[in-house]
Computed example of a mutant assay.
Amino acid sequence: MQHAHYLAYNPGITSKEGGLPGLSVLKNVVSSINLYSIIAVVGALAISALVWAWGHHSGGHQAEANGKKGTVVAAGCALLLRAANGIVAFFSAMGTQVH
């Protein structure tokens, strides 16, 4: 007798538009939050780059290191914010593939 081994139980629930009212409003709110976040990251990137440059030219090694760290973090945030929709779409599509 051969048994099938499953890694997890699939309850059969999928994403579907039109189930509840307000989906378009929620999409607009999330899109606006994403836009404001990207604008904030641009500001953080500019400030971090200024701190990096100021630390470098004034000999402030701690300021230079913090500016570098802030620049890298802000650039990573910008990348993730811009790619968030694609990342979620990619991984949610992985669960729908049949082997």
Rank of each mutant, 00 (worst) to 15 (best):
M1K: 06
Q2Y: 09
Q2T: 10
H3V: 09
A4L: 14
H5K: 06
Y6P: 04
Y6S: 12
A8L: 09
N10E: 12
P11I: 01
I13R: 13
K16L: 14
K16W: 04
E17R: 14
E17V: 03
E17N: 10
G18H: 04
G18A: 03
G19K: 13
L20Q: 02
P21D: 08
P21L: 02
L23T: 11
S24I: 02
V25K: 08
L26W: 03
L26I: 09
K27Q: 12
N28S: 15
V29W: 05
S31V: 00
S32M: 13
I33W: 14
N34L: 09
N34I: 03
Y36K: 06
Y36R: 04
S37M: 11
I39K: 13
V41S: 08
V41N: 07
V41K: 06
G43M: 07
G43H: 08
A44L: 12
A46V: 10
I47K: 13
S48K: 00
S48L: 04
L50F: 13
V51P: 01
V51T: 13
W52M: 15
A53V: 14
H57R: 04
S58C: 05
G59V: 08
G59P: 11
G60Q: 09
H61F: 10
H61Y: 09
Q62A: 14
K68D: 07
K68Q: 14
K69C: 01
A74E: 02
A75I: 08
G76D: 09
C77V: 08
A78T: 08
L80S: 08
L80E: 07
L81C: 04
R82E: 10
A83F: 10
A83M: 10
A83D: 09
A84K: 08
N85T: 11
G86S: 15
V88R: 07
F90S: 02
F91S: 07
F91M: 06
F91D: 07
M94Y: 04
Q97Y: 09
